[in-house]
Design a protein around this nucleic acid. Structure first.
Lengths: 247, 247
DNA sequence: AGTTGAAACTTACGTAACGTCATTTTGTAT
DNA sequence: ATACAAAATGACGTTACGTAAGTTTCAACT
């Protein structure tokens, strides 16, 4: 029989954690001394290491408890779910990363964070929240439905759209400059990369999207945030410059 | 002045959350009715959206509070830190993802999870935890020191090493089969990919590493988990088959 | 056997960011 | 004045432990 100290030495797990596992009955000691000190056997040590392993994979203690108690359980399913979760989290983090980088670029270019502009965009972008759900699922022509299906993430407020908002906000900063200015083109380039990521090489959908956006009523109907004509025109001109330079 | 309901409609933030923000003084309403109902102004709405934005980037409420209160604060630093954090988390998740995929492959190949073997490896791999720290920082020849510096993640128990353990565990399952068996070669391929990731194209370090591992005393001295000669030999033979097929 | 210091024990609060009741007040329309 | 929605407060629940505070047990030494 191994004392609790022995276990901590061999696993690096703290005493508190072991007591906690005992408390939630995840890992109950094999026995106790008459004084109440916990005693663990080899079997418990093994189980503890299984717990450690599963924890590293990101499972919760509750899940681990179920997995280890129910021997007939379908592991495949649990692993599959966990994998899906991990992949999603990774993507979210990737978007956040890009947004952060974008923000930092914005700072270094402009010398200022300019949260107010950015969040004004977000405000517009989020729309009235209730109106949006009211419009959804009704009154769309087929073509628009296709667009909506292809772009589920463009009109929900997730971290992916965040960068679009940010980029447009940054673009808005440079309306007074020339569309060929390096700061402007840098932003456009990022936008270009992002469309590639989203739509792949072909830009059919992208063009359609912008066509819809340019029609104010449709834009509103589809739940997109309105973009001022100024910005739209500026963007188009800058985009054309960028495209011509690509060739 | 806007009622709390108005705010939830425009932002999608729940009443409870607004009350919580009031409680922790992150966002205090502009005023109250005589009856105690919260009233918000445009300024508060704006701040709330800033909070939302920062939250999407993964900042904690405490951090956001500081960022928004201290206008002179150096945002660059906070963003930089957050970026570092996000990148690390992403890497961790990537490792977990690979391990999960490895596990699932193991299942589909063997039809069994075989946690016992895996965790036996982990047990060995983790060693006695204290012994490890005792040996570290003393009694290494220069060459070994270089190796240790290049492989900080190989002898600490992080999720990266997890897959190595896993792969070796899987390999051990197939000791009875031929080294050219597709299951074996599949494992070897994953190992190959992983060495590329870790060491780049050149395999000098990798060979040295295995040289060290093949010497039992050195292996123990450097804190690596011991690998049975059986497994080592099997691995080497399988590796050679794989390499020859590459050309 | 008695003492003592280390180790283990229990109890309980703290963490982050709210969700979810339960209960009571306030606002507003009729 | 009354009814009903909406807002208020209070308190507990959630995760996986960390961190005291105060008490008891263990093992060794005299």
């Amino acid at each position: 029989m191994l004392s609790i100290k022995e276990i901590t030495k061999q696993t690096g797990i703290t005493v508190r954690t072991l007591r906690y596992y005992d408390e939630i009955k995840l890992l109950v000691p094999a026995g106790k001394t008459e004084g109440g000190h916990r005693l663990y056997g080899e079997k418990e040590l093994k189980k503890l290491q299984e717990i450690q392993f599963l924890k590293m994979l990101g499972f919760s203690l509750k899940e681990i408890k179920e997995m280890l108690s129910d021997k007939t359980r379908d592991w495949q399913e649990g692993l599959q779910n966990q994998l899906q979760y991990v992949i999603k989290e990774k993507e979210k983090l990737a978007e956040i990363e890009k947004t952060l980088i974008g923000l930092m670029n914005g700072i270094t270019i402009d010398g200022d964070v300019n949260l107010s502009e950015v969040q004004k965009m977000i405000h517009l972008y989020q729309g009235s929240y209730e109106e949006r759900n009211a419009y959804r699922d009704q009154m769309f022509c087929e073509e628009e439905k296709v667009l909506l299906d292809l772009l589920p993430n463009m009109n929900s407020r997730d971290s992916d759209s965040l960068e679009w908002v940010l980029l447009l906000g940054q673009l808005k900063q440079h309306l007074d400059k020339d569309v060929t200015a390096p700061q402007v083109q840098k932003i456009i380039q990022r936008m270009y990369e992002k469309t590639i990521e989203t739509f792949g090489d072909n830009d059919v959908f992208f063009n359609k999207l912008w066509a819809v956006r340019k029609s104010p009523e449709k834009s509103k109907k589809m739940g997109f945030y309105p973009i001022e004509d100024e910005v739209l025109d500026f963007f188009e001109r800058a985009w054309q410059v960028f495209e011509s330079k690509q060739k």
